[in-house]
Design a protein around this nucleic acid. Structure first.
Lengths: 238, 238
DNA sequence: TCCCGGTGGCTGTCTATACAGGTATATATA
DNA sequence: TATATATACCTGTATAGACAGCCACCGGGA
C-alpha cells in the first residue's frame, strides 16, 4: 500500500473545488468563511487561508476583504501557446536545424518600426532576414528589426551559429512580449524562399519584445500553413 | 503624500527580483537560504517562505527540498491568447452580433470525431454549423460536433438566441481544453458563407473541450484572414 | 577503494496568536 | 427622517515555534 500523503491545504483546496463541481456552491455564491471552515475541517486558519488564496490565484474564487469569499463566475476561454526558439524545438524532435542569413544590414526604419522603437521614420535600425530549415526543408522565415541602442554589435554576429533570439535574450532579457497571429499570403520573395505553391496560406506571428520596459525587437515569423501549426492545452489544477 | 504601504512579502519578492535583474544572482545560482534571508531582512521565515513560494509559481525561482533555492533558467517564450466567446467579444466592441444557423442535425461521426468522443466511426453525434456576423459582416464559421451523451437536447436549442458555447458551458463546465491554430484555405462552401475571395487565407482554430475528464465538444472556428487576428501580451509581474 | 550510516542544513508544512483594515448592519444622535 | 457612530464579522498580513522530509557530504568500516 503506497499511501499517498497529501498536505492539509491541498485537501482543503480539493474539498472546496469538489463542492463547487458538485453543485453545493454555485458561481456567485458566498462560501463558508475562514472561521467556519476552521471549525468544520479542524485545521488552522492559516492553512485555510493558504488554500483559499491559491484557489483565488487560480481563478476559482473571488475574495473581498470585509465581506467574504465567493465562487468565481465562469472563466473566459484562455489558450496558452508556447512560442519557442525554433532551433530548440527542432533539436527536440531530433531533427537537424540550419539557419541561412538572407540579409543582415542597417536600414532606414519603416513607419511602424520607428514608432515601436520611439525613433523618427527613416532612423537607422538593424534588419535581418533568416531562413530556418528543418532537415533541409524550409519551415520559417524570420524577418527582424532590432533597436541598435540595445544591440550595437548586432550586424557582426554569425547567426548561422547562434540565432538572433538567443543572442538578444542574452544581452537584453525579455521583460515583456506582445504577439499577434494572422493568416496571410506571403510575398513572392517569401514564397520562393519557403518553396511553397502560390496561394498557400501561411501563419504569421508578429512579436514585439521589451527589456526593462524598453522596446528591443520587432520580428515577423512566417510559417508555411502546410508544415506548421500552433497548439496548446489548458487544464485547471487541483 | 499618499504613502503607499506595501506588505512585507511583496517587498521581499521585489528585492529578490531586483537582485536577479541587477545581476547579483544569475540563472542557475543558488540564492540565500530562508534562514539567511530572515537574518538579513528581519522578517519571519513564514514571510520569506511565502515570497519565495510565489516567485517559484511565477517561474522566477526553482526550489529543491534539502538543497536550496535557485534562480530559474530563462523561461520559454509563452504567449497567452485569450480565445473568447465571439458574441461577447463583438458586444464589447459595441457592435451588433448575429448568428445564423446553417445546419443543425444528427450525423454519423467521422473518424476523427468518433475517436475524440470514444465512439465507433459512424455513431450518431450532433453537428452544427453557424455563421457569426459582426454588423452584418461574416466574421466566423463555427463547425461543431457534440457528444449527445452530454447534451441530449442540443438539437432543440435556438442558437440564434444563445450560442452553443454558452449553452454547453452551462450544462457541462469546461475542465480542459486543447487548441490548435492553423492557416488554411477554406472550402468553397465556407468561402461563400464568409463572402471572401478565392485564395484568401483563413485562420482555423480547432478546439476540443472536456468536462470532468470526458470529451464534450469538437469545434472548428474559421476566421477570414483579412478580418481577424489573435493577439496576446505577457509581462512578468513584480 | 568502495560502500554505508550519521549529521547538518535546507525546504515543506502546520499551528496558535495577533493586529490591521475593510464592509455592512445596527444604534444613537441631530 | 437623515446622518453620524459603534460594532460585529470578514479577509489580509505577520510572527515564533515546531516537526517532517529530503539531500549532500563526511567519516568509518569492510
Amino acid at each position: 500500500m503506497n499511501q499517498e500523503i497529501v498536505p492539509h491545504y491541498q485537501r482543503v483546496k480539493r474539498m472546496i473545488a469538489d463542492r463547487i463541481a458538485g453543485g453545493t456552491w454555485h458561481p456567485g455564491d458566498r462560501i463558508s468563511s475562514e472561521a467556519e471552515l476552521v471549525k468544520e475541517l479542524g485545521v488552522s486558519r492559516m492553512t485555510i487561508n493558504r488554500a483559499l488564496r491559491e484557489l483565488t490565484i487560480e481563478g476559482v474564487l473571488t475574495r473581498v476583504q470585509g465581506v467574504g469569499t465567493f465562487v468565481a463566475s465562469v472563466k473566459p476561454q484562455a489558450a496558452l501557446f508556447e512560442v519557442r526558439n525554433i532551433a530548440e524545438e527542432i533539436a527536440e524532435r531530433g531533427h537537424q536545424h540550419r539557419a541561412a542569413v538572407i540579409s543582415l544590414k542597417a536600414v532606414p526604419a519603416p513607419d511602424e518600426i520607428a514608432e515601436t522603437f520611439g525613433l523618427k521614420t527613416g532612423a537607422r535600425v538593424f534588419h535581418s532576414i533568416l531562413l530556418h530549415r528543418e532537415n533541409d526543408l524550409p519551415v520559417q522565415i524570420e524577418d527582424r528589426y532590432v533597436d541598435p541602442r540595445h544591440a550595437a554589435d548586432y550586424l557582426e554576429q554569425d547567426f548561422t551559429r547562434q540565432t538572433p533570439y538567443v543572442y538578444l535574450t542574452a544581452i537584453a532579457p525579455i521583460s515583456e512580449a506582445e504577439h499577434i497571429i494572422e493568416a496571410v499570403l506571403p510575398s513572392t520573395t517569401e514564397r520562393k524562399l519557403l518553396k511553397i505553391d502560390a496561394h498557400e496560406p501561411c501563419l504569421q506571428l508578429t512579436r514585439r519584445t521589451w527589456s526593462s520596459g524598453k522596446p528591443v525587437s520587432h520580428v515577423r515569423l512566417i510559417y508555411p500553413g502546410s508544415r506548421y501549426r500552433l497548439s496548446g492545452r489548458i487544464a485547471p489544477k487541483g
